[in-house]
């Protein structure tokens, strides 16, 4: 009896988690006039919303921009994060603790403080409407540095000393000798960084106003509040589906990694 209630609750919850996605996908395939009364399936299916949406906004370009920006940032965060993390974990230098606490401090600093001045910096550097504005401020990620530091600390010093005796440079030690043993951390940092950059909207909205450089979530947001949709709901929903799909497909393949990485972001 108790089991049955648990199953019913779980199933009802699961439906309420899936239904909005289902509705959105169905609505994007429904002729404009019928969307208002759509509950499950439309009377007839149309792809007009998609063809019309593709002709209204450069969504393909935005998809590529998002992939480019997120990939470069992910790559950069892994490289730079592991370098700094390694320095903090396995080398000795003056001010090491100072840098460590600086990182902790920066992590707790609310972004509301830096939002306006960082925008002004971007303006003064002439980076408005440039990929650099989307990429450079995100190349260092404090949380990634801490994760790398932690996993480097668990690596025995002997491994590093042996590599040094063999004449390896520190860079080679990090990327060739130590990287294979911290793969879970790399995966976690990679997924987290990729996802947060992929989903970032506020910063692109501020620094990029050129559609050729816009990221996907940004373009979809502006399309939904702006005028080019001609007040047609179907095309807006179609663009939202395009935004949701890539990450949902990636999720369906790598669920385990997504869940593990996100969970580790919570457990600091």
């Amino acid at each position: 009896m108790k089991k049955a209630i648990i199953y019913i609750v779980l199933i009802v919850m699961a439906i309420s988690f899936l239904y909005p996605f289902f509705w959105m996908i169905m609505a994007s395939l429904t002729p404009e006039k019928q969307i208002g009364s759509l509950t499950f399936f439309p009377d007839s299916i149309t792809f007009d919303n998609y063809t019309s949406m593709f002709s209204k906004i450069p969504i393909g370009r935005a998809l590529l921009n998002s992939m480019f920006v997120s990939s470069v940032i992910t790559f950069g965060v892994i490289m730079l994060g592991s370098m700094v993390g390694y320095a903090l974990a396995k080398t000795k230098f003056n001010g090491r603790n100072f840098i460590f606490y600086l990182i902790i401090f920066t992590m707790t600093l609310p972004f509301q403080i830096t939002l306006i001045p960082n925008y002004i910096t971007i303006v003064k550097l002439g980076w408005v409407d440039q990929y650099t504005a989307l990429i450079i401020p995100f190349l260092i990620n404090n949380f990634a540095i801490l994760l790398f530091r932690q996993s480097f600390m668990s690596i025995p010093q002997a491994l590093i000393d042996a590599a040094r005796i063999d004449g390896c440079s520190e860079i080679r030690i990090i990327f060739q000798v130590l990287f294979p043993s911290i793969i879970p951390t790399i995966v976690t940092v990679g997924i987290l960084t990729f996802m947060t950059t992929w989903n970032e909207v506020l910063w692109p909205l501020i620094v990029v106003r050129d559609e050729q450089v816009m990221t996907l979530p940004q373009l979809v947001t502006l399309f939904s509040v702006g005028g080019r949709a001609d007040a047609q709901l179907g095309v807006k929903l179609a663009s939202a589906v395009i935004l949701a799909l890539p990450i949902m497909i990636a999720y369906s393949f790598f669920q385990k990694y997504f869940i593990q990485s996100m969970a580790s972001s919570g457990i600091k």
Partner: peptide, 19 residues
């Protein structure tokens, strides 16, 4: 490592598309 290949692939597509 399926995932790293996936990420590298994304990087490649992204770079190609935006040049």
């Amino acid at each position: 490592m399926k995932l790293t290949t996936f990420l590298l692939l994304l990087l490649a597509i992204g770079t190609l598309g935006s040049c």
